[in-house]
Amino acid sequence: MLGEAILKGLAVTAKNFALSYVSRARLVTIQYPEERQPLPEATRQFPFLVYDGDDPHAGLRCVACQICEKECPPQCIYIVKSKDKKPDHTGKPQFYPAIFDIDLSVCMSCQICVEVCPFDAIKMDTEFELSTTDRFHGLLVHKEQLAKSNAYYHKIHPTEAAAVDARLAAERARADAKAKPAPPTPPQKPAPAPTPA
């Protein structure tokens, strides 16, 4: 009969409509912002700088090597190196960024800065409700706003943060082993020349 397939189609639509009252699979919307969708762990929005411990200045991992600045495709990172140095997590004195700005209106969340950073200093945040009324300065974030603690990093990306901590701890252990003085030799053998630290 003419129109049979249209009626069959209407039956499909009716089924979806009726089932949307009982089945979560048919009703796929949520009442945002009262309800929020749980996001997977790997989700990424904009970068942030990680610092260890409580002091955002002393614990900042970034050593201003400017590799992320060079590799960023839209060039949204702006770094000015400091003139003095401060000790990093293994105790070695390193430069730090006097200025570290990211222009969020240009950043395209590609995560290349995170991949190329040799010091695990910059990671991806999950915060996306960043609307502001000032188009230019409101979206230009500075070092103070970017620096967030390692505890926060563990909260948003637990697996990744645990892996990073393990890697940094291994580096610290290697640095400590090298810094220990050479063990005393048995008296029969002549004393070896002191190895440079």
Binding site: Y78, I99, D103, V106, H142
Partner: peptide
């Protein structure tokens, strides 16, 4: 057009129009 983090070629163009300060007005 004004942009807050100019680099390289864009910075050279910017200098023709105004003196860019180190960004971060703070």
């Amino acid at each position: 057009e004004w942009e807050p983090t100019p680099h390289d070629a864009v910075l050279a163009k910017a200098r023709k129009h105004f003196t860019p300060t180190t960004s971060s007005g703070a």
